[in-house]
């Protein structure tokens, strides 16, 4: 094992130790791991392909059965496909959209905030104006319009969706990063970094950014939460392509087409995607809150000391 991978293993162990200090956090980590494993299983092709669409009342919202175990244990959904399978198929795409969107949001927000705060002057004036304008445009509102007007082939593109869902989401992070950068600029370690001869990029992206690492990491996770909200929420409005693997579409169909209003026929089709979404959001929010601890050098060394 090389030093790098050993180091990585050590880091992961440490992160796990931080999580295991609180049962809620441990639970959240396990939940997230289950989702990631499920996504990998789908991507690697270990899951049977979605069976073809079967119209007709007799196939929709069938009760659970042991047929093709385990795929029919939640019964079928509105296209007559096994519900469990469609939910699992939704995981990789949702996670991909969420993660890509969070990367764009945090990447753009951090870069703009850092540059505006560190460079200052006219650059700051212009970037601040851009931030202030973007702040007045709610992401989901513009995303809604774009999702409606974009041609269908673009709407299903993961990268386009990620871009749409982060269209102005970067602004609030950029504002916070800018304010923190301006405060950090006055710190003595930045003066020292200058005399050491570090260039602006090194100071911005190593010294200043490292200081904000917990905040940035927290925002990365919270941006995932936001993107999942938008991705499923816009689908629930019926504005996304009606793909069976979108949890928002599944809830929409369970209420509008499954008679969830009057009977328990579609109860599994209603609650399964809801629990899938809420569980994921709950886990992500708890993990976001833990970022402070993960990056806290005092806690890290304390836990490392326990090992010895």
């Amino acid at each position: 094992m090389s030093e790098k991978s050993r180091n990585l293993a050590k880091q992961l162990k440490l992160v796990f130790k931080i999580f295991s200090r609180s049962p809620t956090l441990l639970f959240s980590l396990v939940v997230l791991l289950v989702y990631i494993i499920a996504a990998l299983v789908v991507v690697l092709g270990f899951v049977p392909p979605l069976p073809p669409y079967k119209g007709g009342w007799e196939y929709m919202y069938q009760p659970p059965s042991l047929r093709d175990f385990p795929w029919y244990i939640l019964g079928t959904e509105y296209t007559g496909r096994p519900l469990l399978l469609t939910i699992i198929y939704g995981i990789p795409k949702t996670l991909a959209v969420a993660f890509l969107s969070a990367l764009i949001t945090v990447g753009v927000g951090t870069a703009i905030g850092l540059i505006a705060g560190y460079v200052g002057g006219l650059v700051d004036e212009l970037l601040s104006l851009a931030i202030n304008v973007a702040l007045t445009i709610p992401t989901y509102l513009l995303a809604l319009i774009l999702v409606v007007i974009l041609p269908p082939e673009l709407k299903t593109n993961v990268l386009v969706l990620a871009g749409v869902l982060s269209i102005t989401a970067w602004a609030s992070l950029a504002r916070a990063v800018r304010a923190q950068t301006i405060a950090l600029k006055r710190r003595e370690f930045i003066d020292v970094a200058k005399t050491i001869g570090y260039g602006s990029w090194k100071i911005m992206f190593d010294e200043v950014l490292r200081f904000m690492a917990p905040f940035i990491a927290m925002n990365l996770v919270l941006s995932c939460v936001g993107a999942i909200y938008g991705y499923t929420g816009l689908a629930f409005l019926g504005l996304m392509p009606m793909t069976p693997d979108n949890w928002g579409v599944q809830i929409y169909m369970a209420i509008r087409g499954g008679g969830a209003l009057y009977s328990d026929k579609a109860i599994l089709a209603l609650w399964s995607p809801i629990i899938t979404i809420v569980l994921l959001q709950y886990a992500l929010i708890n993990i976001a809150k833990a970022m402070e601890d993960i990056f806290n050098p005092a806690l890290r060394t304390y836990l490392q000391g326990e090992e010895m």
Binding site: V225, Y229, T232, G233, F236, L237, I251, I255, I274, I277, V278, Q281, Y282, L284, I285, N286
Partner: peptide, 14 residues
């Protein structure tokens, strides 16, 4: 935290 993780449109639907 639980209410924080429930999207408003899901709570509305439920």
């Amino acid at each position: 935290t639980v209410f924080n993780s429930i999207p408003n449109w899901i709570l509305a639907a439920v």
